[in-house]
């Protein structure tokens, strides 16, 4: 495992920790999109179907379990926890996320590495992850006061994607047989979705003003 990959996984983990901190400690999910969180839970469930079939490493297994458990518990908190759910900004989180699922499934049936159940589900998870951030970005645009933890959460998620691209470039040159075009293309699309957010995030940080996305 190279340094970019490890750094990418760590920023991904950090984003989850920041979100859980906000939800578990501050008991607030203000500014967080339940739609995006539900999509992530679906992404991990679809991608990690081989969890108990293919053992890669202890690191791999533990990280998969962490992402599965955290994504489902975040959804649970936002839907069921009696204090947290009251802070959910339902009125602004209106993205029709169900309409993302079917096209991703259709695309996975058409474009996959092999036409088997697990490979189709893997491709589906890659496509869905690429667009899963959209409800969150829309909600941020509609949020007047984006708190620091929410901003940091999205920033770390975006950083994880950038680091994964650097990891692929590194692997391309060091492991000639390592080419997953599906994840590369979807990953680049996913990262581009953050470009706008990154711009405003860095500007607010540089100028030391509160983060706000133009509508």
């Amino acid at each position: 495992m190279n340094a970019f990959r490890l750094a990418g996984d760590m920023t991904h983990l950090l984003s989850v920790v920041v979100l859980l901190l906000k939800i578990h400690t501050i008991k607030s999910c203000a500014g967080i999109s339940l739609k995006t969180q539900e999509l992530y839970a679906l992404v991990f469930a679809a991608r990690y179907l081989d969890l108990f079939i293919h053992f890669i490493s202890l690191y791999n297994t533990v990280m998969k379990l962490v992402f599965l458990a955290s994504s489902f518990s975040i959804v649970w908190y936002m839907r069921r926890h009696k204090i947290v759910r009251r802070t959910y900004d339902k009125d602004h989180d209106t993205f029709r996320h169900h309409f993302l699922v079917l096209p991703c499934l259709a695309l996975a049936l058409l474009i996959n590495e092999r036409f088997t159940f697990r490979e189709v589900m893997w491709a589906f998870s890659i496509y869905l992850e690429a667009v899963a951030i959209l409800p969150q970005l829309v909600l941020l645009q509609r949020t007047r006061n984006i708190d620091n933890l929410t901003g940091q959460y999205v920033f770390f998620l975006g950083a994880y994607r950038v680091l994964y691209i650097l990891n692929w470039i590194y692997r391309y040159f060091t492991e000639p047989h390592f080419v997953h075009w599906i994840s590369w293309v979807a990953g680049i699309v996913q990262t581009l979705l953050y470009a706008d957010f990154f711009y405003y995030y860095i500007m607010s940080w540089k100028n030391n003003v509160k983060l706000e996305l133009p509508a």
Binding site: R5, H12, I56, S57, R114, W122, H177, H180, S183
Partner: peptide
């Protein structure tokens, strides 16, 4: 085969 490449990323 290409499909046999281990998917070791998260």
């Amino acid at each position: 085969a290409a499909g046999d490449i281990v998917k070791d990323e998260l």
